[in-house]
Write a protein that binds this DNA or RNA. Structure first.
Lengths: 136, 136
DNA sequence: ATTAAAATTGTATTATTGTATCATTGAATA
DNA sequence: TATTCAATGATACAATAATACAATTTTAAT
Protein backbone atom coordinates (compact mmCIF):
# COMPACT_ATOMS: atom_id res chain seq x y z
CA UNK A 1 0.00 0.00 0.00
CA UNK A 2 1.61 3.22 -1.21
CA UNK A 3 2.93 5.67 1.32
CA UNK A 4 1.55 8.94 0.06
CA UNK A 5 3.51 11.22 2.34
CA UNK A 6 0.73 13.79 2.34
CA UNK A 7 0.90 16.88 4.47
CA UNK A 8 -2.22 18.60 5.76
CA UNK A 9 -2.09 22.19 6.89
CA UNK A 10 -5.01 22.71 9.24
CA UNK A 11 -4.50 26.45 9.16
CA UNK A 12 -4.57 26.67 5.40
CA UNK A 13 -7.39 28.46 3.65
CA UNK A 14 -7.65 25.41 1.43
CA UNK A 15 -10.13 22.88 2.87
CA UNK A 16 -8.67 19.57 4.02
CA UNK A 17 -10.61 17.62 1.41
CA UNK A 18 -9.19 19.81 -1.35
CA UNK A 19 -5.68 19.45 0.01
CA UNK A 20 -5.97 15.67 -0.14
CA UNK A 21 -7.43 15.72 -3.65
CA UNK A 22 -4.76 18.01 -5.02
CA UNK A 23 -1.85 16.20 -3.44
CA UNK A 24 -2.92 12.79 -4.68
CA UNK A 25 -3.51 14.34 -8.08
CA UNK A 26 0.02 15.70 -8.01
CA UNK A 27 1.46 12.32 -6.97
CA UNK A 28 -0.16 10.80 -10.03
CA UNK A 29 0.97 13.56 -12.36
CA UNK A 30 4.51 13.33 -11.05
CA UNK A 31 4.54 9.58 -11.53
CA UNK A 32 4.99 8.86 -7.83
CA UNK A 33 1.68 6.98 -8.03
CA UNK A 34 1.17 4.59 -10.92
CA UNK A 35 -1.92 2.87 -12.30
CA UNK A 36 -2.80 -0.13 -10.18
CA UNK A 37 -1.20 1.22 -7.02
CA UNK A 38 -3.42 0.75 -4.02
CA UNK A 39 -4.10 3.79 -1.88
CA UNK A 40 -4.43 3.54 1.90
CA UNK A 41 -7.93 2.80 3.17
CA UNK A 42 -9.98 5.80 4.07
CA UNK A 43 -9.57 4.94 7.74
CA UNK A 44 -5.83 4.38 7.55
CA UNK A 45 -5.14 7.63 5.75
CA UNK A 46 -7.53 9.44 8.06
CA UNK A 47 -5.60 8.18 11.08
CA UNK A 48 -2.30 9.21 9.52
CA UNK A 49 -3.57 12.69 8.76
CA UNK A 50 -5.49 13.01 12.03
CA UNK A 51 -8.69 13.66 10.18
CA UNK A 52 -12.13 12.09 10.12
CA UNK A 53 -12.31 9.21 7.67
CA UNK A 54 -15.29 10.81 5.96
CA UNK A 55 -13.03 13.62 4.89
CA UNK A 56 -10.72 11.14 3.18
CA UNK A 57 -13.72 9.30 1.72
CA UNK A 58 -14.96 12.57 0.26
CA UNK A 59 -11.59 13.25 -1.32
CA UNK A 60 -11.49 9.73 -2.76
CA UNK A 61 -14.98 10.15 -4.19
CA UNK A 62 -13.97 13.38 -5.89
CA UNK A 63 -10.88 11.74 -7.35
CA UNK A 64 -13.07 8.85 -8.44
CA UNK A 65 -15.49 11.16 -10.21
CA UNK A 66 -12.48 12.72 -11.92
CA UNK A 67 -11.54 9.29 -13.20
CA UNK A 68 -8.19 9.31 -11.45
CA UNK A 69 -8.86 6.51 -9.01
CA UNK A 70 -11.29 3.65 -8.58
CA UNK A 71 -12.98 3.22 -5.22
CA UNK A 72 -14.83 0.00 -4.55
CA UNK A 73 -16.78 -0.68 -1.43
CA UNK A 74 -15.26 -3.58 0.46
CA UNK A 75 -12.22 -3.79 -1.82
CA UNK A 76 -10.26 -0.61 -1.53
CA UNK A 77 -9.02 2.23 -3.68
CA UNK A 78 -6.66 2.04 -6.63
CA UNK A 79 -5.04 4.42 -9.05
CA UNK A 80 -6.99 4.17 -12.25
CA UNK A 81 -5.07 5.99 -14.92
CA UNK A 82 -2.25 8.40 -15.42
CA UNK A 83 -4.30 10.52 -17.76
CA UNK A 84 -4.09 10.84 -21.50
CA UNK A 85 -0.67 11.72 -22.83
CA UNK A 86 -1.87 14.77 -24.71
CA UNK A 87 -3.58 16.22 -21.65
CA UNK A 88 -0.79 15.25 -19.33
CA UNK A 89 1.38 18.29 -19.98
CA UNK A 90 -1.49 20.71 -19.63
CA UNK A 91 -2.63 19.05 -16.41
CA UNK A 92 0.86 19.12 -15.04
CA UNK A 93 1.10 22.84 -15.75
CA UNK A 94 -2.31 23.48 -14.19
CA UNK A 95 -1.34 21.55 -11.09
CA UNK A 96 1.82 23.59 -10.84
CA UNK A 97 -0.09 26.85 -11.08
CA UNK A 98 -2.63 25.75 -8.53
CA UNK A 99 0.09 24.58 -6.17
CA UNK A 100 1.85 27.91 -6.47
CA UNK A 101 -1.35 29.89 -6.05
CA UNK A 102 -2.21 28.13 -2.84
CA UNK A 103 1.31 28.39 -1.52
CA UNK A 104 1.36 32.10 -2.14
CA UNK A 105 -2.04 32.59 -0.57
CA UNK A 106 -1.07 30.75 2.62
CA UNK A 107 2.35 32.37 2.88
CA UNK A 108 0.90 35.84 2.46
CA UNK A 109 -1.85 34.99 4.95
CA UNK A 110 0.87 34.12 7.45
CA UNK A 111 2.06 37.69 7.01
CA UNK A 112 5.20 37.15 4.99
CA UNK A 113 6.26 39.43 2.17
CA UNK A 114 7.17 38.60 -1.37
CA UNK A 115 10.79 39.39 -0.58
CA UNK A 116 10.76 36.98 2.32
CA UNK A 117 9.22 34.32 0.11
CA UNK A 118 11.87 34.78 -2.56
CA UNK A 119 14.62 34.66 0.05
CA UNK A 120 13.38 31.51 1.76
CA UNK A 121 12.94 29.69 -1.53
CA UNK A 122 16.53 30.40 -2.48
CA UNK A 123 17.72 29.30 0.94
CA UNK A 124 15.84 26.05 0.81
CA UNK A 125 16.96 25.28 -2.71
CA UNK A 126 20.51 25.83 -1.53
CA UNK A 127 19.94 23.39 1.30
CA UNK A 128 18.46 20.83 -1.08
CA UNK A 129 21.49 21.07 -3.33
CA UNK A 130 23.77 20.46 -0.38
CA UNK A 131 21.93 17.41 0.90
CA UNK A 132 21.83 16.03 -2.63
CA UNK A 133 25.54 16.42 -3.19
CA UNK A 134 26.21 15.04 0.27
CA UNK A 135 24.28 11.91 -0.62
CA UNK A 136 26.31 11.32 -3.80
CA UNK B 1 -12.83 21.38 26.30
CA UNK B 2 -11.32 24.08 28.45
CA UNK B 3 -13.58 26.03 30.78
CA UNK B 4 -12.55 29.61 30.15
CA UNK B 5 -14.54 31.17 32.95
CA UNK B 6 -14.83 34.46 31.09
CA UNK B 7 -16.83 37.34 32.41
CA UNK B 8 -18.59 39.86 30.18
CA UNK B 9 -19.58 43.28 31.42
CA UNK B 10 -22.50 44.36 29.26
CA UNK B 11 -22.36 47.90 30.64
CA UNK B 12 -18.72 48.34 29.77
CA UNK B 13 -17.53 50.78 27.16
CA UNK B 14 -15.40 47.98 25.78
CA UNK B 15 -17.22 46.00 23.07
CA UNK B 16 -18.07 42.42 23.91
CA UNK B 17 -15.88 41.15 21.11
CA UNK B 18 -12.91 43.00 22.52
CA UNK B 19 -13.59 41.73 26.02
CA UNK B 20 -13.56 38.15 24.76
CA UNK B 21 -10.38 38.69 22.78
CA UNK B 22 -8.54 40.26 25.67
CA UNK B 23 -9.59 37.69 28.23
CA UNK B 24 -8.62 34.72 26.09
CA UNK B 25 -5.38 36.47 25.31
CA UNK B 26 -4.73 36.77 29.04
CA UNK B 27 -5.53 33.11 29.63
CA UNK B 28 -2.95 32.19 27.02
CA UNK B 29 -0.33 34.59 28.33
CA UNK B 30 -0.78 33.33 31.87
CA UNK B 31 -0.42 29.74 30.73
CA UNK B 32 -3.95 28.71 31.72
CA UNK B 33 -4.48 27.87 28.07
CA UNK B 34 -1.78 25.83 26.36
CA UNK B 35 -1.10 25.01 22.73
CA UNK B 36 -3.42 22.27 21.55
CA UNK B 37 -6.15 23.06 24.06
CA UNK B 38 -9.57 23.12 22.47
CA UNK B 39 -11.70 26.17 23.11
CA UNK B 40 -15.48 25.93 23.49
CA UNK B 41 -17.40 26.06 20.23
CA UNK B 42 -18.62 29.47 19.22
CA UNK B 43 -22.17 28.41 20.08
CA UNK B 44 -21.25 26.93 23.44
CA UNK B 45 -19.30 29.96 24.59
CA UNK B 46 -22.00 32.24 23.23
CA UNK B 47 -24.60 30.43 25.32
CA UNK B 48 -22.42 30.65 28.42
CA UNK B 49 -21.85 34.36 27.95
CA UNK B 50 -25.41 35.04 26.78
CA UNK B 51 -24.29 36.69 23.57
CA UNK B 52 -24.81 35.94 19.90
CA UNK B 53 -22.54 33.24 18.57
CA UNK B 54 -21.41 35.57 15.80
CA UNK B 55 -19.84 37.76 18.42
CA UNK B 56 -17.78 34.86 19.70
CA UNK B 57 -16.94 33.87 16.14
CA UNK B 58 -15.72 37.41 15.51
CA UNK B 59 -13.51 37.28 18.58
CA UNK B 60 -12.13 33.90 17.53
CA UNK B 61 -11.35 35.23 14.07
CA UNK B 62 -9.43 38.15 15.53
CA UNK B 63 -7.43 35.83 17.77
CA UNK B 64 -6.81 33.64 14.73
CA UNK B 65 -5.47 36.54 12.72
CA UNK B 66 -3.21 37.33 15.66
CA UNK B 67 -1.81 33.82 15.38
CA UNK B 68 -2.93 32.90 18.87
CA UNK B 69 -5.55 30.31 17.97
CA UNK B 70 -6.52 28.21 15.00
CA UNK B 71 -10.16 28.08 13.96
CA UNK B 72 -11.15 25.22 11.70
CA UNK B 73 -14.57 24.98 10.14
CA UNK B 74 -16.26 21.76 11.14
CA UNK B 75 -13.50 20.85 13.61
CA UNK B 76 -13.37 23.47 16.29
CA UNK B 77 -10.96 26.02 17.68
CA UNK B 78 -7.59 25.30 19.24
CA UNK B 79 -4.84 27.22 20.94
CA UNK B 80 -2.09 27.54 18.41
CA UNK B 81 0.86 29.07 20.17
CA UNK B 82 2.09 30.13 23.54
CA UNK B 83 1.26 33.71 24.20
CA UNK B 84 4.74 35.20 24.22
CA UNK B 85 5.24 37.28 21.13
CA UNK B 86 8.62 35.66 20.76
CA UNK B 87 7.16 32.15 20.59
CA UNK B 88 4.43 33.25 18.23
CA UNK B 89 6.99 34.71 15.92
CA UNK B 90 9.07 31.55 15.94
CA UNK B 91 6.07 29.34 15.26
CA UNK B 92 4.92 31.60 12.48
CA UNK B 93 8.35 31.27 10.94
CA UNK B 94 8.32 27.50 11.32
CA UNK B 95 4.92 27.29 9.65
CA UNK B 96 6.26 29.39 6.80
CA UNK B 97 9.32 27.20 6.35
CA UNK B 98 7.29 24.01 6.37
CA UNK B 99 4.82 25.46 3.92
CA UNK B 100 7.65 26.42 1.61
CA UNK B 101 9.38 23.05 1.95
CA UNK B 102 6.23 21.23 0.95
CA UNK B 103 5.60 23.58 -1.92
CA UNK B 104 9.11 23.14 -3.25
CA UNK B 105 8.95 19.39 -2.85
CA UNK B 106 5.71 19.12 -4.82
CA UNK B 107 6.72 21.59 -7.51
CA UNK B 108 10.04 19.86 -8.09
CA UNK B 109 8.38 16.45 -8.05
CA UNK B 110 6.05 17.66 -10.79
CA UNK B 111 9.18 18.27 -12.81
CA UNK B 112 9.45 22.04 -12.74
CA UNK B 113 12.73 23.84 -12.40
CA UNK B 114 13.76 26.52 -9.96
CA UNK B 115 13.67 29.06 -12.77
CA UNK B 116 10.13 28.09 -13.66
CA UNK B 117 9.14 28.38 -10.01
CA UNK B 118 10.65 31.85 -9.72
CA UNK B 119 8.95 32.95 -12.93
CA UNK B 120 5.51 31.68 -11.96
CA UNK B 121 5.71 33.25 -8.52
CA UNK B 122 6.44 36.64 -10.05
CA UNK B 123 3.61 36.20 -12.55
CA UNK B 124 1.09 35.29 -9.90
CA UNK B 125 2.13 38.11 -7.61
CA UNK B 126 1.64 40.45 -10.52
CA UNK B 127 -1.84 39.06 -11.04
CA UNK B 128 -2.65 39.43 -7.34
CA UNK B 129 -1.63 43.07 -7.42
CA UNK B 130 -3.85 43.68 -10.40
CA UNK B 131 -6.95 42.09 -8.93
CA UNK B 132 -6.37 44.01 -5.71
CA UNK B 133 -6.07 47.39 -7.39
CA UNK B 134 -8.98 46.55 -9.69
CA UNK B 135 -11.20 46.11 -6.64
CA UNK B 136 -10.52 49.63 -5.36
C1' DA C 1 -14.35 -27.36 -1.36
C1' DT C 2 -18.32 -25.06 1.05
C1' DT C 3 -20.16 -21.98 3.72
C1' DA C 4 -21.22 -18.92 7.34
C1' DA C 5 -19.41 -15.64 10.64
C1' DA C 6 -16.29 -11.90 11.26
C1' DA C 7 -13.50 -8.30 9.70
C1' DT C 8 -12.54 -4.81 6.39
C1' DT C 9 -13.72 -1.21 3.28
C1' DG C 10 -16.31 2.40 1.11
C1' DT C 11 -21.24 4.92 1.36
C1' DA C 12 -25.13 7.54 3.07
C1' DT C 13 -27.27 10.43 6.27
C1' DT C 14 -27.36 13.48 9.91
C1' DA C 15 -25.14 16.47 13.41
C1' DT C 16 -21.67 19.72 14.62
C1' DT C 17 -18.79 23.64 13.87
C1' DG C 18 -17.05 27.82 11.85
C1' DT C 19 -18.08 31.46 7.85
C1' DA C 20 -20.41 34.94 5.08
C1' DT C 21 -23.90 38.19 4.34
C1' DC C 22 -27.33 41.09 5.50
C1' DA C 23 -30.52 43.25 9.11
C1' DT C 24 -31.11 45.54 13.48
C1' DT C 25 -29.86 48.33 17.35
C1' DG C 26 -28.18 52.09 19.75
C1' DA C 27 -25.15 55.72 20.72
C1' DA C 28 -22.57 59.68 18.78
C1' DT C 29 -23.17 63.63 16.04
C1' DA C 30 -24.87 67.00 12.65
C1' DT D 1 -34.80 65.36 15.41
C1' DA D 2 -32.48 62.99 11.90
C1' DT D 3 -28.46 60.68 10.39
C1' DT D 4 -24.67 57.86 10.45
C1' DC D 5 -21.77 54.20 11.85
C1' DA D 6 -19.88 50.72 14.80
C1' DA D 7 -21.43 46.70 17.29
C1' DT D 8 -24.32 42.99 17.57
C1' DG D 9 -27.84 39.73 15.98
C1' DA D 10 -30.33 36.61 12.50
C1' DT D 11 -30.10 33.57 8.84
C1' DA D 12 -28.29 30.77 5.35
C1' DC D 13 -24.13 28.41 4.02
C1' DA D 14 -19.82 25.38 3.81
C1' DA D 15 -16.58 22.06 5.85
C1' DT D 16 -15.86 18.42 8.89
C1' DA D 17 -17.25 14.75 12.10
C1' DA D 18 -20.28 10.98 14.04
C1' DT D 19 -22.98 7.15 13.30
C1' DA D 20 -25.25 3.57 11.01
C1' DC D 21 -25.13 0.94 6.78
C1' DA D 22 -23.89 -2.09 2.57
C1' DA D 23 -20.54 -4.59 -0.28
C1' DT D 24 -16.59 -7.37 -0.34
C1' DT D 25 -12.95 -10.10 1.44
C1' DT D 26 -10.98 -13.04 4.90
C1' DT D 27 -11.11 -16.64 8.15
C1' DA D 28 -12.30 -20.82 10.12
C1' DA D 29 -15.18 -24.71 10.84
C1' DT D 30 -16.85 -28.68 8.56
Amino acid sequence: MANLNLHIDFRSETPITTQIVEQIQNRVLSGELKPGDQLPTVRQLATDLRVNFNTVARAYRILDSMGLISTQQGRGTYIWSAGQAENRERERRQAFEQLTRHYLRDALALGFSMDQIRALLETQIEQLNHTQTAED
